[in-house]
Design a binder for these strands. Structure first.
Lengths: 99, 99
DNA sequence: TGTTTATGCAACAACCATGTTGCATAACAT
DNA sequence: ATGTTATGCAACATGGTTGTTGCATAAACA
């Protein structure tokens, strides 16, 4: 995959409110399970989706490297990897920053 | 449209290499027509698409306010509005900046 | 061993995105 | 008037996204 195509995929991954809220949650606390994330999305953000829908969102973030996972028994723990986001923030878009 | 949904749309608009190259072109020179942009995309960037395909990309950028237009006879001149991009660069994503 | 807990996979529907082609419109030049 | 130039609109195919539901798997626990 070309570098540009990777950039496209990361932009697409964060072009969704639910996924940005998931990232916000993981920025507050690492190593959260799918169920924990579901619960917080519903209770803190009022995002009512099925477990599978959240699972899909998590896998989109995992595919582009924003989320890293670790298994503990049957529980998949999700953590944030800020590198791809830092890449965007310091990359092409940074030329449009103000102040 | 909610603010969040507006943010989503701007992210999606720049999640495409062709559209980022169009923005780059307009950053170099304002007030370019569709034909000028087509020619530069093909000659400078090797992006071989039809006129209508480029027209679609331009309208995506126009819809989210990244491009502003001005008519001169039958010619539609496109210029860059950096505000939406500055909004992203200074917004949610900026927390992931490094250095 | 059997039940609960946590997750994954597959099928499906609905919608959106991106490219194509063909035709229409509207200004400008000869 | 006619032809050229510049653009828009509509139809269509294709493929991707995002949600649903149902079933499968696999570890943990009483």
């Amino acid at each position: 995959m070309s570098d540009e195509e990777g950039t496209n995929r990361i932009y697409r991954a964060i072009a969704d409110t639910t996924r940005r809220r998931i990232i916000d949650e993981l920025a507050l606390r690492d190593r959260q399970s799918l169920f924990e994330i579901c619960a917080r999305m519903i209770s803190k953000h009022g995002i009512y989706l099925s477990r599978q829908a959240f699972s899909r969102h998590l896998s989109v973030l995992e595919d582009v490297g924003i989320i890293e996972v670790e298994w503990q028994g049957t529980t998949k723990l999700h953590s944030l990897n800020k590198a791809p986001l830092a890449g965007l923030a310091n990359g092409w878009l940074s030329r449009f920053e103000e102040q």
